[in-house]
């Protein structure tokens, strides 16, 4: 009886681990796409409408019908300043958005220039970050397609193997 319960638990844990890794990879891809799109809207708000940064950040989120990171930055920039607000918000939400260190390293440099340059330079900087995110998103999508399925299948097989060994 104990052996059966143990086998079920091990199988369950192994599957859960595989699903968790798969979900992490998918979430990372979704987050990168979200940040990429929001930055594109941010660039449009700045270049086309000359919108104040706070409003441009809020509008970037609204355009994607969500109230997330960019709204949070807009709220905290009044007290922290844009540089700190940008860095703090992304670092605080790193786990929730399932971002890797590479992703964060690509996003954070924008804090140094955001809101301090003329419009053309501002757009160039944002586009630079968008291009970096493009590369990361492609990588994340490939991970989703290849590694995601692999992790799920492997975890199930590993679970089964352990169960067989235990039995």
């Amino acid at each position: 009886m104990i052996r059966i319960v143990g086998a079920v638990l091990v199988f369950g844990a192994s599957c859960a681990l595989g699903l968790f890794v798969d979900k992490f990879i998918k979430e990372r891809y979704k987050s990168l796409c979200y940040i990429h799109d929001a930055l594109s809207y941010l660039a449009i708000n700045i270049s086309s409408f000359d919108m104040q940064l706070k409003k441009a950040l809020i509008n970037a989120d609204k355009s994607l019908v969500r109230e997330d990171i960019f709204c949070e930055i807009a709220k905290s920039m009044e007290t922290l300043g844009i540089k700190k607000a940008w860095k703090k918000t992304f670092l605080d939400n790193k786990s929730r958005l399932c971002l890797k260190d590479n992703d964060i390293n690509a996003i954070l440099p924008l804090a140094n220039t955001l809101g301090t340059l003329d419009r053309d330079s501002e757009i160039r900087c944002i586009n630079g970050i968008i291009q970096s995110l493009d590369v990361l998103a492609i990588e994340a999508k490939r991970d989703c397609e290849i590694k995601g399925g692999l992790y799920k299948k492997c975890s199930v097989l590993l679970g089964l193997l352990i169960v067989i060994m235990l039995m």
Partner: peptide, 17 residues
């Protein structure tokens, strides 16, 4: 000076060009 500029331009130097 940097803080003052950020406050004056509301962190949007491009908008006050």
């Amino acid at each position: 000076m940097e803080t003052a500029i950020e406050l004056i331009s509301e962190a949007s130097m491009y908008a006050v060009k």
